Simulated assay, not measured.
Amino acid sequence: MCAFLLTTGYSIAQEAGSAAQSSSTHSSTTVTGTDPAAWYMNPIVWVVGAVILLLIIIMAAKSGKGNVSNREVSRTTTTTTTVKED
């Protein structure tokens, strides 16, 4: 807790400037479309990622069913009864 309070106090003290030191610095940052760090902003990446995710979900759903066959099974039972008359 003390370390947190000391670092907070130090940060606030650094932000305050005196009136005698009036220096002005300007900086600008320009982001272009060829920035390799901005690959996640490309819509094609999102579409391809969504398609891959859907394929994974579909494959997982199909593998959970096991070996289920679509064949129709029918069973016929024949019984024979013999009645004896006296």
Rank of each mutant, 00 (worst) to 15 (best):
M1V: 10
C2S: 03
C2V: 15
A3Y: 02
F4W: 03
L5W: 06
L6P: 00
T7F: 06
T8F: 06
S11W: 01
S18H: 13
A19I: 09
A19T: 08
A19Y: 05
A20D: 13
S22Q: 13
S22C: 00
S22A: 12
T25R: 12
H26N: 09
H26E: 04
T29N: 08
T30I: 09
G33Y: 04
T34F: 10
D35Y: 15
A37G: 11
A37F: 05
A37C: 04
M41T: 14
N42T: 06
N42S: 08
W46V: 08
W46L: 14
V47P: 00
V48T: 00
V48E: 05
G49Y: 14
G49P: 02
V51D: 04
V51R: 07
I52H: 01
I52K: 02
L53I: 03
L55W: 09
I56P: 01
I57H: 03
I57M: 03
A60D: 03
A61Y: 03
K62M: 06
K62Y: 10
S63A: 09
G64S: 14
K65L: 11
N67R: 11
V68P: 01
S69D: 07
N70A: 06
N70Q: 11
N70E: 10
E72S: 00
V73D: 12
V73K: 10
S74D: 04
T76D: 11
T77V: 13
T77L: 08
T80P: 03
T82L: 04
T82D: 13
T82I: 08
K84R: 11
E85D: 15
E85Y: 10
E85S: 13
D86E: 12
